[in-house]
Each structure stands twice: as C-alpha cells, then as structure tokens.
Amino acid sequence: MRQVGSPALMWSLAGAVMAFLYLPIALVVLFSFNSGESLGLPFEGFSLRWYGEVLENRQILRAALNAFLVAIASTVVAVVFGLPTAIALDRYDFPGKSVFRRIVLLPIVLPGIITGVALLGFFVMMRIPLSLWTIILGLGTALICIVVTEVFARLQQVGRSQAEAARNLGANEIEIFFRVTLPAISSALIGAMLIAFSIALDELAITYLLTGRDNTLPMQLWSMLRRQVTPEINAIATLVVLVSLVLVTVGMVLSRGRGRRGP
C-alpha cells in the first residue's frame, strides 16, 4: 500500500490547489460571455456579444494572423535545429557535450527577456531591422529546447537497438533516419511542435523586444491590457486559452501518452 496520510485530507488539499489553478482562468472564460459592460460582477446575462466585437476588430484579426505565421515559422526553426540536436545528444559522446547541452537548455531557466535583450543587441549591431522575421529568429531559438527535451526523452525511451538493427540489416544513415528513427519519434515530435507552437502564439517577452512595425497578438493584448481594459479582452483571452489548451492537450497525448503505453 502506497497511500500515506488520510486520503480525505490529502485529496481536499490537492483539490483546493487544483481549484486555485483553474478558477482564475474559468472566471475569465465565464465573464467573456457576460452581456454587460463590466469586467466582473455582476453577471448580467449570457451573450456572445464580445466575441462578435473581437471578430469585427480588424486590428486584432491582423495581429492574430501575424501571430499564427510567426508561431508556424518559429516552430519550423525549432524542429529543424532541435531534432538533430536531440539525435546528436542521444547517440554520440563528444567533447564539450555537457556544456553544449546546458547552452541548449538555458532558455528553459532563463527569463525570455534576456534572450530578447541579447538578440536585440545583436540585431542592432548587425543593422538588421526589427520585423516579424526577427521575432521568428528569437522565438525559434528559445523554442529549440522544447523540441530537444521531448525528442531526446523519446529517443532514450526507444533505445538504440532499433537503429542498430537497421544498420545491421544494411541501412545507411539516411535510410535509418527516415525508416526507423523518424517513425519512432514522430508522435513525440508532433507533440513538441504543438507545444512549441502554442508557446510561440502568446510569448510576450521576446516578442516585445523584437517586434518591429507589425504587431502580433501578444503585443496587441499587452497594449490593450496596459490601457483601460474592455470586456472584449475576456473574449480574446478565452480564445487564446482555448487554442493553447487544445494544442497542448493533443501535444501531450501524442508525445507522452502513446509512448508510455507502447510496446
């Protein structure tokens, strides 16, 4: 028997913390359907009014579209460089491996703003004008670590014997990658991509520093929040949360769920 402590007490403590985690988000979602002008109480009635206003706001739609494009492109960057990193870390020992690994994972611990400040200095010095492209470079770099951790964990779980078996059967490096490695990690990779995408969609710190003329959704939200808040924002927030929750849930189930039950 693994249980320690009174189940009733432990469960209610845990339940309270979980409620703490979900209630604030739930309130935002709830009030997005409030027909009244106020942001909080009283709840005047159910309506989709604010969603309608969001969908008519060209500025917001434009920013959302930009955010999607940026998120897609930075996810691509993260995969293109994260996948080989994970493979190299899994398969080979090389001098400086632990330093390299720490540099790769640094963005996980580092506040995003530092990555932003550093890259901003770099772009200024290189005379690269800020634009959506600079956001993509920054987010892509920061997101590589997500792909590396997810894919690396799966590679470790799969082990080397499949790749060795393929090599032993006569497969060359390219055949091993496409016929053995990629199928084995595909679900983890897709999961990592969805998670990276959802982070890119509403990352603020790097975006804030590297944004040029074109706004993306997090910047739009940020400036709306700094000015007087309108109930519209509840609707945008709900949509943003909804999108990221769906992406993350699917990503998690793909990257870890199947791997655990697998053969």
Binding site: I25, D202, A237, L245, M252
Partner: peptide
C-alpha cells in the same frame, strides 16, 4: 495533463485574470 495545462496556458491571460479578481 490537468496540471500542465495551466502552465502552458497563455501567460498574459493568467496575469490578466488576477487583475480582474
């Protein structure tokens, strides 16, 4: 998943939620 969802949910929205509360 239940625990990780709020972690990956939009940062700005989470801060905003406390402002309304």
């Amino acid at each position: 998943i239940l625990i990780i969802l709020p972690w990956w949910a939009s940062y700005l929205v989470k801060v905003y939620a406390w402002r309304t509360i």
